Amino acid sequence: MCQFCTQHGEGKKWYENMANYTAEMFHQVNSEQNLLRFLRTFSKSLRDNVATASRWQRRFPRIYRFIAYPLLSRKMEKTHFGQVVPLEDVESILSQMEHIVRLPCVCRRVSLGTEQRYCFGVGMDLTPILAQVPDFAAFEYWTREQAIAFIRQLDQEGKTHSVWTFNTPFIGAICNCDQDCMAYRAQITLGVTRTMWKAEYVAAIDPHRCTGCNLCRKRCFFDAIGVNRDNQKCVIDAAACYGCGVCRPACQHNAIRLIDRAAVPAAAGSW
Score class of each variant (00 low, 15 high):
68 A>E: 14
142 W>Y: 12
117 R>Q: 15
181 C>Q: 00
136 F>Y: 14
121 G>C: 13
99 H>R: 00
204 A>G: 05
196 M>T: 06
244 C>V: 02
33 Q>S: 14
143 T>R: 07
142 W>H: 12
162 S>F: 05
234 C>H: 03
33 Q>C: 03
104 P>T: 03
204 A>Q: 12
169 P>V: 08
133 V>A: 01
134 P>C: 10
168 T>Q: 01
223 D>H: 12
254 N>H: 15
104 P>M: 02
46 L>N: 12
31 S>F: 09
34 N>F: 07
19 A>F: 08
155 D>N: 10
248 R>I: 15
231 N>G: 05
122 V>S: 00
254 N>V: 07
260 D>A: 15
189 T>N: 07
90 V>G: 04
208 H>I: 02
149 A>Y: 05
128 P>L: 10
118 Y>C: 09
91 E>I: 09
148 I>Q: 07
193 T>W: 08
248 R>A: 11
195 T>W: 01
92 S>W: 14
119 C>L: 10
136 F>R: 00
162 S>T: 05
13 K>R: 14
100 I>V: 14
232 Q>G: 00
68 A>H: 14
263 A>V: 09
69 Y>P: 06
217 R>Q: 09
3 Q>K: 09
131 A>Q: 15
108 R>T: 13
269 G>N: 14
186 A>Y: 09
112 L>F: 07
121 G>N: 15
40 R>M: 04
220 C>D: 06
253 H>K: 11
50 V>F: 09
188 I>R: 01
19 A>E: 14
83 Q>V: 12
71 L>N: 14
108 R>Q: 11
248 R>D: 04
116 Q>S: 13
258 L>S: 06
125 D>F: 13
89 D>V: 03
223 D>A: 10
76 M>G: 01
130 L>C: 09
64 Y>A: 06
106 V>D: 04
13 K>Q: 14
94 L>Y: 06
241 C>A: 09
137 A>G: 01
4 F>Q: 05
242 Y>T: 05
68 A>S: 12
188 I>P: 02
209 R>A: 10
121 G>S: 15
37 R>D: 13
4 F>H: 05
144 R>W: 10
173 A>P: 05
209 R>P: 01
99 H>K: 10
144 R>G: 14
158 G>Q: 01
54 S>G: 15
166 F>K: 01
223 D>S: 12
210 C>D: 06
224 A>Q: 04
267 A>V: 15
